[in-house]
Design a binder for these strands. Structure first.
Length: 605
DNA sequence: GCCGTTTTCGGCCCGACTGTTTTCAGTCG
C-alpha cells in the first residue's frame, strides 16, 4: 500500500489532515469499537461518519472549524462534530488515542484480512499472542491458529490463501483493470453457459468508482446452479473461494476476485439494485422502505403487515415503489442523491454519447505512439466532430517536447491533416508545462497562435500547498490557457495527488473562465469524483479528455464520463459536449468574457 | 452515536455461505 494511504494516526507532524485522513481515524474508531463489542448502531454511526468525510466535497479541516456547520451534515451529531473539531484543530483526538491504547497495536491490521473479524482477531491476540500479519501467518503455519474456537483447518487454510494473495497484489485494483476483466468474464460466461439469459456488471465497477476491491457480476437464468458451475469452470479461473446454488466467488488470472450471483428474471431489479450498492445507499433505501411499512431485500419489497413480497424485474420499479425516480448508479453513494431525488432535483448527468470532441491528444511529434494523421483518423472513426493535437512543450525533454520552431511546424501539419481527413475539425494545441514558478513553457505570443492550450503540472509535485496553489492559479490567470490538465497529477493507487488549496483553485478557474480537465485515462482519473463535485458547486466548467497517446486510448473517454457522473456533472457543465460550431464560438470568446459565455450556455442550455 | 410526517426515547437493514456445529456464530457484501 502506498505510503500516503497508510494510517495518519492524527500526528500533527505528518501530512496535513485531508479528508482521507480524517475519514481514516473514524473508520479506525469503528473497528476498535467492534473489538470492544460495542453496540452495532454506535459502530454504524462512526462508519457512516468516515464515509461522509471521505466523500465530502470541500475540506473537512476547514468545515470543522465550526461545529455547528458540521452538525448540518446528516449523520454527524454532537459527539462526532466535537471529536472532529478536536482532531482538525489539535491534530489529535483523545477518545481515539485512549481507545487505541486498549488493544494490541496490530489488531487493526489483522482485521483487514478477509475472514478475520473482531472475534477472531481478538481471540488470536489473547490466546496466541498474534499481533501482526506476520504473527498470523506463523500461527496458521504452526497449526495453533486452527485450534481457536470456530476456526478449523479449512478456515485457517482459506485465510492463509488470502494472505498469500495479499503479498502478491494490492487490496484494490484500479477500475482500468477491473472493468476489462469484468467484460472478459461476461463474454466468456455467455459462451460457456448457453442457458444464461443476461449478465450485468454490478458493484463499484458499475458505479465507476476509480478503484474496485472485487468484481461483481449478476446473471439471470432459470437454472442458477448450472451457471455458477459454468462460472467456476471458466478457463481464467485459478481458484474457487466459494460456491453455492446461487452465488460463487473465484480468483481469476491476474489475481482479481470475481463474485457471481444468479437469480430468475422476476427478482432481477431488486437484486441488481442490491448488489450495485453503495452499501450506504442501500441502507438508506431500506430505512426509507421501513418508514412506509415495507422491508427491502434482494428479492423485492415485503409488506410488513401482510408479509406479501412484491418482486421487480427493473431497478426503476423498486425506486418507483419507494416513491423515487430512478437514481443512476454513479451517484448512489448516500451523499444527498436520495434527497435530491425526492425533491425532483437529480442532476441530468452527462453521457458518453454527448461528447463531441477530445481536446487532449498526443502524437509521435512528442511522446505519442503514432503519427498525427493516424490519431485524427482514429478519432474521426469514433464519431468525434473535433479533436485538438496537444503535444508536449519543450520543458518535457523526456517526452520529446516541442521547441517553438517544432511547434510552428506542428501547427502547419495540423492544417494539412485536417484538410486530408475531410470533415473532422482539428485544433492547433499544446499541453504546455506549468513550471515550478507558475510560468509556462511558451510565451504568450506563441500561445496566442494556438486554439487549445492545456496547461499541466509534470514536475515539482511535492511543493508546499501554498506554493503549488499560487503556481496553478498563475496558470489559470493566463489569458491563453483553455484548461488545466490533470490537476492533481495523481495516479490511481500509485502516486498521491499534489497538495493544494483546491477551493481557491476552483474559485480562480470559475472567475477566469478557465476550464478544468477531467482526464479520462484510467491511470489518472483526475479530477476525481469529489473534486468534480466541489468544483461544479463553485461554478467551474469542464472538459473530458482522453490524454490519448495511442489510438486505443481514445476509447477511454468512458472512464472520464464515469468520473464526471460520479461528480454530478451535467451536460451543460462539460464544454466538449458542444457541437463543433458552438465550441468554436466558445474558443472565439476572449478569456475575460468566457466566464459569462459559460453562464449563458448554462441558462440557455 | 444519530435521529424524529408514528418517537427527544426507543428505535436503528437484510440474507447467503462456510465451517463448525448438532442448531448456529462469524463474516461478508
Amino acid at each position: 500500500m502506498p505510503e500516503f494511504e497508510q494510517h495518519i494516526s492524527g500526528s500533527p507532524t505528518g501530512r496535513s489532515l485531508d479528508n482521507q485522513g480524517v475519514a481514516r481515524v473514524f473508520a479506525d474508531i469503528a473497528t476498535l469499537l467492534k473489538l470492544k463489542g460495542e453496540s452495532v448502531f454506535k459502530i454504524r454511526a462512526y462508519t457512516r461518519a468516515a464515509e461522509v468525510f471521505e466523500h465530502l466535497p470541500g475540506q473537512v479541516a476547514l468545515l470543522a472549524q465550526d461545529e455547528d456547520q458540521l452538525k448540518e451534515i446528516p449523520g454527524i451529531g454532537d459527539a462526532i462534530a466535537s471529536k472532529t473539531h478536536e482532531l482538525v484543530t489539535t491534530g489529535k483526538m483523545e477518545y481515539f488515542e485512549k481507545l487505541r491504547g486498549e488493544f494490541a497495536p496490530g489488531l487493526l491490521d489483522l482485521m483487514t484480512v478477509p475472514e478475520v473479524g473482531p472475534k477472531t482477531a481478538l481471540r488470536a491476540s489473547e490466546d496466541l499472542g498474534v499481533e501482526s500479519i506476520e504473527d498470523l501467518e506463523a500461527a496458521i503455519r504452526d497449526g495453533s491458529f486452527a485450534t481457536l474456537p470456530r476456526v478449523g483447518v479449512k478456515k485457517a487454510q482459506s485465510i492463509l490463501n488470502h494472505l498469500e494473495a495479499r503479498f502478491s497484489q494490492a487490496d484494490r485494483m484500479p477500475i482500468g483493470k477491473a472493468l476489462p476483466i469484468a467484460e472478459q468474464v461476461i463474454s466468456a460466461l455467455y459462451q460457456a453457459a448457453a442457458e444464461v439469459r443476461r449478465l450485468t456488471i454490478a458493484g463499484s465497477v458499475r458505479r465507476w468508482r476509480d478503484t474496485a476491491g472485487d468484481i461483481d457480476i449478476l446473471g439471470v437464468a432459470d437454472d442458477p446452479e448450472s451457471v455458477t458451475a459454468a462460472f467456476t469452470a471458466l478457463p481464467m479461473v485459478v481458484d474457487i473461494l466459494g460456491q453455492g446454488g446461487t452465488k460463487a466467488s473465484v480468483i481469476v488470472t491476474g489475481g482479481a476476485q470475481v463474485d457471481l450471483r444468479v437469480s430468475d428474471e422476476r427478482h432481477f431489479g431488486a437484486l441488481l439494485l442490491y448488489f450495485s450498492g453503495s452499501k450506504q445507499h442501500g441502507i438508506s433505501l431500506r430505512a426509507r422502505a421501513q418508514k412506509i411499512g415495507l422491508s427491502l431485500n434482494e428479492y423485492g419489497l415485503t409488506d410488513k403487515g401482510s408479509g406479501e413480497l412484491t418482486s421487480y424485474d427493473t431497478e426503476a420499479g423498486v425506486y418507483r415503489a419507494l416513491n423515487l425516480p430512478y437514481i443512476p448508479p454513479e451517484i448512489r453513494e448516500d451523499l444527498g442523491e436520495i434527497v435530491a431525488a425526492e425533491s425532483g432535483n437529480l442532476p441530468d448527468l452527462v453521457e458518453l454519447s454527448q461528447i463531441c470532441g477530445d481536446l487532449h491528444v498526443h502524437s509521435d511529434w512528442s511522446d505519442g505512439r503514432v503519427p498525427m494523421e493516424q490519431m485524427v483518423r482514429e478519432a474521426a472513426l469514433r464519431g468525434l466532430e473535433y479533436v485538438a493535437m496537444t503535444d508536449h512543450s519543450s520543458g518535457r525533454g523526456i517526452a520529446n517536447g516541442l521547441s517553438v520552431e517544432r511547434l510552428a511546424a506542428h501547427n502547419e501539419e495540423v492544417l494539412e491533416v485536417e484538410q486530408a481527413a475531410g470533415g473532422i475539425r482539428v485544433f492547433k494545441g499544446t499541453e504546455v508545462d506549468i513550471r515550478a514558478d507558475g510560468t509556462l513553457d511558451y510565451t504568450d505570443e506563441v500561445l496566442a497562435e494556438l486554439d487549445i492550450v492545456i496547461a499541466s503540472v509534470h514536475s515539482g509535485m511535492s511543493q508546499e500547498s501554498d506554493v503549488m496553489t499560487a503556481r496553478i492559479i498563475k496558470a489559470i490567470e493566463n489569458p491563453h490557457v483553455t484548461a488545466i490538465g490533470h490537476l492533481t497529477t495523481r495516479f490511481v493507487l500509485d502516486r498521491p495527488p499534489v497538495e493544494a488549496d483546491f477551493d481557491a483553485i476552483f474559485r480562480a478557474a470559475a472567475s477566469n473562465g478557465t476550464l478544468m480537465e477531467i482526464n479520462a485515462s484510467p491511470k489518472r482519473m483526475d479530477l476525481k469524483d469529489s473534486h468534480i463535485r466541489q468544483a461544479r458547486e463553485l461554478g467551474v466548467r469542464f472538459l473530458i479528455n482522453t490524454d490519448a497517446h495511442n489510438p486505443d486510448n481514445l476509447d477511454q473517454l468512458r472512464y472520464g464520463v464515469g468520473s464526471a457522473r460520479r461528480g454530478w456533472a451535467e451536460r451543460k457543465e462539460v464544454l466538449n459536449t458542444l457541437p463543433v460550431a458552438e465550441f468554436e464560438r466558445f474558443l472565439d470568446t476572449p478569456k475575460p468574457e468566457r466566464a459569462s459565455f459559460i453562464t449563458e450556455q448554462v441558462v440557455t442550455g
